[in-house]
């Protein structure tokens, strides 16, 4: 196994009396693509959001490349963490008052300190990579959901993150737009990007993931390579969930 990018130990999170994450332990290795599946309310999105501190965990440890960024209830270097961890959201969250190019450029200029021109060139390059070379000057309201999501991916990539987090990024898309986004993600995986993907796309998980994690009720119930977890699950809960999802 190559170097560990993210190391999560004993992660806990609750909202009032509701324990969303009870004891999450996992390691994400460099270049690994991990798909996280599970019923809604299982805590998979919360876990992802804890990984870049959009939700503050209540306990446990998170290390990025061996540097502790959360531990003992204390957080460190949040902005440093976040610039190394790219995140793509279910609802795209593009900045509606900026063109596609500006969306991708803004953090390069403000966080990475790149020159505007250099950032714009990189943005056009990335937008072209995700198939939107023609749309760099369009505003989000003129783009389809699938196109917006691809801009959002380019925006996160522009920070040259060490790991990319995807939070149900195709769930809000019309069916015919899903493929374009998944293809971009496959391309990223092929080029060795470390990815944690919360998804309901079982075919994507089967094809692309190195490892599948099944979560339920705040725990990691089962994990392993996709063929094992999806084809031959060991736990009752995993079987029940897959039975419901795959019989559709």
């Amino acid at each position: 196994m190559s170097e560990t990018v993210l190391n999560v130990e004993g992660l806990k999170k609750s909202y009032g009396k509701l324990d969303v994450l009870k004891d999450i332990n996992c390691k994400i290795a460099e270049g690994e693509v991990v798909c996280v599946i599970g019923p809604s309310g299982s805590g998979k999105s919360t876990m992802l959001r804890c990984l870049n501190m959009l939700e503050l965990p209540d306990g446990g440890r998170i290390e990025l490349h061996g540097n502790e960024i959360f531990g003992g209830g204390k957080t460190r270097d949040l902005d440093v963490l976040r610039r190394e961890v790219g995140m793509v959201f279910q609802s795209f969250n593009l900045f509606p008052h900026m063109s596609a190019k500006q969306n991708v450029s803004i953090a390069q200029v403000r966080v990475r300190g790149r020159k505007r021109k250099e950032a714009d060139e990189r943005s056009v390059e990335l937008l072209t990579e995700v198939g939107l070379g023609e749309k760099v000057d369009e505003y989000p309201d003129r783009l389809s959901g699938g196109q917006q999501q691809r801009v959002a991916i380019a925006r996160a990539l522009a920070m040259d993150p060490e790991v990319m987090l995807f939070d149900e990024v195709t769930s809000a898309l019309d069916p015919e737009l899903v493929k374009g986004v998944l293809d971009v993600m496959k391309g990223l995986a092929d080029r060795g990007m470390t990815m944690v993907v919360v998804t309901h796309e079982m075919n994507f998980a089967r094809e692309v993931a190195d490892r599948v994690i099944f979560m339920d009720k705040g725990f990691i119930v089962e994990q392993g390579n996709p063929d094992d977890v999806l084809g031959n699950p060991q736990q009752e809960r995993t079987k029940r969930f897959l039975g419901l999802v795959l019989s559709r």
């Binding site: 976040r82 969250n93 900045f95 959002a152 996160a156």
Partner: peptide
């Protein structure tokens, strides 16, 4: 919007 912005390190 705030989440997306913060997630970029701003």
């Amino acid at each position: 919007q705030m989440e997306a912005s913060r997630s970029l390190g701003m």
